[in-house]
């Protein structure tokens, strides 16, 4: 819950991060932040949110390493945490979409710096996908993991990942054909 998150964070800030955890997280940030944030951006469709979520992921990693500096932390963990964060965010956004009278949340910001027509088509199609399918598709074809690696990260089987990719592809194809015919 939030209270504990804030308290924990405040404690860490007040106490000062351990050098080991800080060093390891800094290395993770340098190596993976861009790729992870891009993956998240495709998942949630918004740059600012992607940055927030990726920051959350690294912060979680930092807190985890503060608690146990000897813990092994692989990049797969980052993607798993990022995927979970993105899925949670999308669920919350669904709730707030009901509340919001301001429907155009982030479409404009996406289009400003994504000028390729294919990118826009892709993002529109990704928005239609169930989050599990979007995660499988992006983790494999966008982030470059194999179905076996993605399965490990997502906690499922390689066949399930391939099937999700196929189903996501069906939607993509549908959107592409729709746009072509219109």
């Amino acid at each position: 819950m939030t209270t504990s998150t804030r308290t924990g964070l405040d404690d860490y800030v007040a106490a000062g991060p351990t050098a080991i955890a800080q060093g390891r997280v800094e290395a993770l940030v340098i190596e993976h932040q861009t790729k992870l944030a891009r993956y998240l951006r495709r998942m949630v469709g918004d740059a600012e949110t992607a940055l927030d979520l990726s920051q959350d992921v690294f912060l979680s990693a930092y807190r985890m390493l503060c608690a146990d500096p000897s813990r092994e932390l692989r990049v797969g963990w980052l993607y798993r945490a990022a995927t979970n964060a993105a899925i949670s965010f999308m669920r919350r956004r669904k709730i707030l979409h009901v509340l919001s009278l301001d429907r155009d949340l982030d479409g404009s910001s996406w289009r400003i710096d994504e000028r390729g027509a294919a990118s826009i088509d892709l993002q529109a199609a990704l928005g239609r996908l169930p989050s599990e399918q979007a995660a499988a598709l992006l983790m494999t074809s966008y982030a470059g993991y194999s179905s076996a690696e993605a399965a490990q990260i997502l906690g499922t089987t390689a066949d399930a990942v391939r099937q999700r990719v196929c189903r996501a592809m069906k939607t993509l194809r549908h959107v592409m054909n729709e746009e072509q015919s219109s």
Partner: peptide, 11 residues
Amino acid sequence: EVLAGAIALGE
């Protein structure tokens, strides 16, 4: 679908 996914991923 599994096979098509594998083809899509080049696997």
